[in-house]
Each structure stands twice: as structure tokens, then as C-alpha cells.
Simulated assay, not measured.
Amino acid sequence: MTKKYLTQGKKPHPLIEVWKDYPEILQNDNRILPVPSIEQMIGEVFAPGKFYYYVINFADSTISHHHENILKIHCLSKYPVHLKEIIDLIHPDDLEFVMEAERMSIEKMKQINGFDYQQELKTSYCFRMRTSAGNYELFHHQALHTYKDENGRLLQAVNIHTHIEHITQNNSYIVLVSGINGREDFHQMQWMKNDSCSKSAAVVFTKREVEILSCIAKGYATGEISGMLNISQETVRTHRKNILKKADARNSSELIRKAFERVYL
């Protein structure tokens, strides 16, 4: 019997060309899966602006359990049911990067043996999508892995797209694989167009600084950050000064813009 490589969907899409190279990692048998605890997972992501999410099933690339914002943001008359409908919204010039970003993420997880704890990792990068205004605008993409089969192959993920055009219009083409649920993984990779040997970008911030940066971006005050991270307020203030200095930012607004441009979140 010939193996199926995620091609049995009625609407093939470009990412299949990446996924079919990793049959040992991605599940391709149809099965009914439970709904992930999406609202709880949203606490692990960063969304300073309008966002939506959807669940993707890797067996046939169908999507479901959409957040209602997807309709208004992209001016859709009905919820998309296949990943191809999402990919068709991406700027054609960004498709090459999206495909390579998927491959870079998978290869990084292989390198760090991340498939053993894939549900505690998220991937993120940016690309342009068509909006209700008729323009292509920048979105921050985050993927969280929800269910795996008995052989450790990925069955399902939740994708979150946040509209960030109001923060920055600059795409750094950086791919990030980072830890959630307490894990401290933090791996940045820089994509270079027409360069198959993508180089890892230097990490500017420490893990603690990234945690504080995320809290600042979510609007938490110094005292709140101190309590959340169990450190003194003076330590928070010191970290904040160091973060602003490293980012060459004058204030929090400029800091958040640069954080998205360099995909620290």
C-alpha cells in the first residue's frame, strides 16, 4: 500500500510540498480529534491587536473552530474550511518565505530533539495577508501544537494570526521557535532570499528580558510584572532599562515595534 503524504485533501496547497518531506513527523491518517483548549492556549501567545485563530488538522489540511474575527479582518462571507483558503490570502511574494519558514521550523525542532516536547514549543514569523481594506498588510503568525498520535507524529495545531500593520510594516523574515508552559527554548533563524543555507540570527535579549518585554507589551505595570515573575520591582526596572538600551528604543511603543520587526515575541 502506498503511503499517503498529506495529499488526500481536495485542495492541495504549497505547504504540502514541505510537509510531505517529513512523514515521520506529521500524521497523515484521518481520525476524529477533540477540540483543543483554545482559550487557555491564547494566554501563551502575544496578540496586541486584532487577531483570530483556527484549528488545523494535518491529515487533510482542513481547518475548523475559527475565531469570528477572521470574517471581518479578511472580509470573508463564510468560514474557510481548508488551509488553501488561508494561504490564498497571503501575498504571493511572501509564499516562498512561508514555505521556507515551515521547513526551517521543522529542521530546528529536529536539531534540538524538539519533537519529544513539541506541545511545549511554538513557532512564529510574519507575512502579509489581504485584508478587508483590499490591501496586503502585515500579520504575526503563531502556531501551537496540540495533539500527537501514539507514534509522536503531529495531528493538530492551533494557528493564531495577529494584525500588526499598525505597529510595523517591516518584515524581518526571522523565524522563531520558542518555549511555552515554562520551557525556556529560544531559537531565532534569519531567512535570506535565494539562500538555502539560512543563518541563525544572534539572540539580542536574554530569556528573562523576553519575558519582561512580553509583559510590557501586554500593558502590565512594574508591580504586576514583579508579582508575576516573582522578582523585585527594582529588578524589573533594571531589566526594562537594559531592554530599551539593547533595542535602541526611546519608549515602550518604539520597543514593541522593534520587537515585532525582529520577532522576539
Score class of each variant (00 low, 15 high):
Lys110Leu: 11
Phe115Leu: 05
Phe115Pro: 02
Phe115Tyr: 06
Phe115Ala: 07
Asp116Thr: 06
Asp116Ile: 01
Asp116His: 08
Asp116Ala: 06
Tyr117Gln: 03
Gln118Ile: 15
Gln118Val: 15
Gln118Tyr: 12
Gln118Asp: 02
Gln119Asp: 07
Gln119Ala: 14
Leu121Arg: 05
Leu121Asn: 08
Leu121Gly: 11
Leu121Phe: 14
Lys122Leu: 14
Lys122Cys: 03
Thr123Phe: 04
Thr123Gly: 14
Ser124Asn: 11
Ser124Ala: 13
Tyr125His: 15
Cys126Pro: 00
Cys126Asp: 06
Arg130Cys: 14
Ser132Ala: 15
Ser132Ile: 07
Ala133Cys: 05
Ala133Asp: 09
Ala133Lys: 09
Gly134Ile: 11
Gly134Asp: 03
Gly134Pro: 10
Gly134Thr: 03
Gly134Gln: 06
Gly134Asn: 03
Asn135Glu: 13
Asn135Met: 10
Tyr136Gln: 08
Glu137Thr: 08
Leu138Glu: 01
Phe139Leu: 11
Phe139Ser: 12
Phe139Trp: 03
His141Asp: 13
His141Arg: 08
His141Glu: 08
Gln142Val: 14
Gln142Arg: 05
Gln142Trp: 06
Gln142Ala: 13
Gln142Lys: 11
Ala143Glu: 12
Leu144Val: 15
Thr146Glu: 10
Tyr147Leu: 10
Lys148Ile: 15
Lys148Cys: 15
Lys148Pro: 00
Lys148Tyr: 11
Asp149Val: 13
Asp149Lys: 05
Glu150Asn: 13
Glu150Ala: 07
Glu150Asp: 14
Glu150Met: 09
Asn151Glu: 13
Asn151Leu: 12
Asn151Arg: 08
Asn151Pro: 01
Asn151Phe: 13
Asn151Tyr: 12
Gly152Gln: 07
Arg153Gln: 14
Arg153Ala: 14
Leu154Ala: 10
Leu154Gly: 10
Leu154Asn: 06
Leu155Cys: 15
Leu155Asn: 13
Ala157Glu: 10
Ala157Arg: 07
Ala157Pro: 01
Val158Leu: 08
Asn159Arg: 01
Ile160Thr: 11
Ile160Asn: 02
His161Phe: 15
Thr162Gly: 06
His163Trp: 11
Ile164Thr: 02
Ile164Tyr: 02
Glu165Met: 09
His166Asn: 12
His166Glu: 07
His166Ser: 14
Ile167Leu: 15
Thr168Ala: 07
Gln169Ile: 04
Gln169Pro: 01
Gln169Thr: 14
Asn170Ser: 07
Asn170Tyr: 04
Asn170Trp: 00
Ser172Lys: 07
Ser172Glu: 09
Tyr173Asn: 09
Ile174His: 11
Val175Met: 11
Val175Tyr: 02
Val175Gln: 06
Leu176Met: 08
Leu176Lys: 10
Val177Gln: 05
Ser178Cys: 06
Ser178Ile: 01
Ser178Met: 02
Gly179Trp: 07
Asn181Ser: 09
Asn181Phe: 13
Arg183Glu: 09
Arg183Val: 03
Glu184Gly: 00
Glu184Met: 06
Asp185Phe: 12
Asp185His: 14
Phe186Asn: 10
Phe186Gly: 01
Phe186Val: 00
His187Asp: 04
His187Thr: 05
Gln188Pro: 10
Met189Ser: 12
Gln190Phe: 01
Trp191Ile: 05
Trp191Pro: 00
